[in-house]
Write a protein that binds this DNA or RNA. Structure first.
Length: 289
DNA sequence: GTGTTTGTTATCAA
DNA sequence: CTTGATAACAAACA
């Protein structure tokens, strides 16, 4: 599912392909009208003919600037995809042309941003949890302020992490890490990976975490998120980057999506699954305490 | 038909 | 106020 590394990859792709390009027209599928804001007519008239100036991101939220006194907020939620298709259907990645691995628009296409001779940007969303909202700059700032520090920012220090942990001593660590107002960008995949790397169970109450465990958890979060950004995200289900390619962090996953398989660390126990914070949680019953 | 998948928010209960 | 549990949103898949 799109978490910080996936959304950051999409952000970079859109920035690379589309900044400076002008939207010629926009189409919205009828079954997605209630996820467009303010409404289709205003949405289209506000963005049509506008040039993309900047692509920003906070947590898992994309913020597109078209030089207006408004911003376009895009959340992919669970199955949203932003896929850019250049005129000739090929894309340059790391200096080399690569073929699209996925036809776009696909079956679940919900919106299309036609950039004329520069190509088309498709928004697909199987489960329709995502949204496209044009809001005032002021509202965009209010929205942005709801997000906490990101694991890849320099402001995310061990001291900061410890201070945040102290605010919720009785909360389960997994639930805390999933809350976007404390630390933003972590989702179900990376939270399980971070807990595994720290050898702690996701349902541990924060107050029971020792000093060394807190430090290890902090380091694990940073390391895992950074590596995942480097690998262009994780494609377990529907995630693809801004050119329709899958993310490469899958081969680095240690617990997530490994239920029933041998633990890669102790090589004895089998990865199990339980519910923590209402979410499916993969863990090694032998390694994680 | 049932349970599971998950980002986020709302609602309820203790 | 804090915390956890559950449902809701929607669609696919086993």
């Amino acid at each position: 599912m799109p978490e910080l590394p996936e959304v950051e990859t999409v952000r970079r792709d859109l920035e690379k392909y589309l900044v400076g390009k002008k939207i010629k027209d926009i189409t919205i599928k009828p079954d997605f009208l209630n996820k467009i804001s303010p409404n289709k007519e205003e949405f289209v008239s506000l963005l049509q003919g506008k040039k993309l100036i900047d692509v920003d991101r906070v947590g898992k939220l994309l913020i597109l600037d078209f030089g207006l006194n408004k911003k376009l907020l895009v959340h992919l939620k669970m199955t949203g995809q932003f896929v850019f298709v250049p005129p000739r259907g090929r894309i340059i990645q790391s200096g080399h042309p690569v073929e699209q691995t996925r036809s776009a628009p696909d079956k679940y296409n919900k919106a299309s941003f036609n950039f004329g001779k520069n190509g088309v940007l498709y928004f697909n969303d199987m489960r329709k949890f995502g949204y496209l909202k044009v809001v005032s700059n002021k509202s965009a700032e209010v929205e942005r302020a709801r997000y906490g520090v990101e694991p890849i920012q320099s402001a995310f220090t061990l001291k900061k992490f410890n201070e945040l942990l102290e605010k919720r001593p009785n909360m389960e660590i997994k639930k805390f890490l999933l809350m976007q107002n404390f630390i933003s960008g972590i989702g179900n995949i990376y939270v399980d990976e971070a807990c595994f790397a720290t050898s702690i169970m996701g349902d541990r109450k924060i107050r029971t975490l020792s000093e060394p465990e807190r430090k290890k958890l902090y380091q694990s979060i940073k390391k895992i998120i950074k590596k995942a950004v480097e690998m262009r995200g994780t494609s377990v289900n529907t995630y693809v980057d801004g050119s329709g390619q899958k993310g490469n962090y899958v081969k680095y996953l240690k617990v997530y999506s490994r239920v029933g398989k041998k633990c890669l660390r102790c090589k004895k126990a089998t990865i199990k699954k339980m519910k923590v914070a209402g979410r499916g949680t993969s863990y090694c019953p032998a390694c994680q305490k």
